[in-house]
């Protein structure tokens, strides 16, 4: 189980690196969307690992509220580009 968690952390490092090294705003947005999903799945996994469901409930609330903030930000950036 621990090796699976390490693999997940490695996969999480890829979008973090991408968000740091790319200057284009849309590529950054893609990386952030990927980070958001991966972190909440990791939270779910850790809650199963430690048999602690209060962590899992938080992860599920994050998932079901969703990336509404990112969508709003995308529309905002689009408007800014048009001006």
């Amino acid at each position: 189980m621990d090796s699976i968690l390490i693999a997940m952390i490695l996969a999480l490092l890829i979008p973090i690196y991408e968000a740091w090294q790319d200057d284009n705003i849309w590529q950054k947005m893609l990386a952030f969307a990927s980070i958001a999903t991966k972190t909440s799945i990791m939270m779910l996994f850790i809650s199963v690992l430690r048999h602690d469901w209060s962590i899992g409930v938080v992860a599920i609330i994050i998932l079901s509220v969703g990336n509404a903030g990112l969508m709003l930000l995308a529309h905002l950036i689009k408007r800014m580009n048009q001006v």
Partner: peptide, 14 residues
């Protein structure tokens, strides 16, 4: 989110 990102990035110019 994929649809929104595709829509915004394609009509935003770059």
């Amino acid at each position: 989110l994929g649809y929104v990102l595709a829509y915004c990035s394609s009509s935003g110019g770059n």
